[in-house]
């Protein structure tokens, strides 16, 4: 959905590093911004201390990524997507909306597709995480990847890794899909270039290739 016109200054000021918050802060003046932050701090009293909590500083976690355990040190607020991209150098999953609405960060966790931007890394411990980097072996593409190439199923390419992971997981669960099932199965991913027609054809073809038909 489109953003509304901004009708005035919000009552609530953000203290993070968002561009919007920064612009507002500048517009209002740093004095007002500081005052609002202090006000919020005063309202949100820390809850009673509890044992067994992690953070807010960095904590050691281990993620099982593409079959290998990966140890890393991250704050609890770090998402799985940021952990993959910034800490493990796996930049296949893309950070596009970062709000769980576009699907470009789709990875497979415990056999299910998820938005990596909507999962905390600390929450993903103990689960098998599969990213786009695991699909091809050497120069041999996964049937879904090969079919995407053959059907020219991308333009700018930002959505492609997420779509390929969504398609792979969908085909693992639905080996004989109808076109309607493909549309519903991939409805969690968006392509702003509008390459849906090619992608659906690619997924249909890949379904045949994955059953032992002619590989692309």
């Amino acid at each position: 959905m489109n953003q509304p016109k901004e009708p005035g200054d919000p009552k609530r000021l953000r203290s993070g590093f968002s561009r919007r918050g920064f612009i507002r802060g500048v517009g209002i003046g740093s004095g007002a911004l500081g005052g609002a932050v202090l006000h919020e701090e005063a309202l949100a009293e820390p809850p009673a201390a509890a044992a067994g909590v992690a953070g807010p500083g960095a904590v050691s976690i281990t993620l099982q990524v593409n079959g290998k355990p990966q140890a890393l040190n991250v704050e609890p607020r770090v998402t799985l997507l940021d952990a993959l991209r910034n800490h493990l150098n796996l930049t296949g999953a893309k950070k596009v909306c970062d709000r769980g609405t576009c699907g470009a960060c789709t990875v497979i966790m415990a056999g299910k597709v998820v938005y990596a931007c909507n999962v905390l890394a600390i929450d993903a411990q103990g689960k098998n995480i599969q990213t786009i980097e695991s699909l091809s072996t050497g120069s041999r593409l996964h049937p879904v990847e090969a079919a995407f190439v053959r059907h020219d199923a991308q333009q700018c390419g930002y959505c492609t890794p997420g779509f390929v992971m969504a398609a792979k997981n969908f085909l693992d669960k639905n080996p004989n899909p109808t076109m309607q099932q493909i549309e519903h199965g991939l409805s969690g991913n968006l392509c702003r270039c509008g390459t849906y027609v090619g992608m659906r054809q690619a997924v249909l073809e890949a379904s045949k290739a994955m059953k032992g038909g002619p590989r692309a």
């Binding site: 953000r14 905390l120 929450d123």
Partner: peptide
């Protein structure tokens, strides 16, 4: 987390503690 994480990223929610 499909609603909570976006709310926290936009700092509409700014909890001191998150209970999974």
């Amino acid at each position: 987390g499909t609603d909570l994480l976006p709310l926290m990223k936009d700092e509409i929610h700014t909890p001191r503690r998150v209970v999974n």
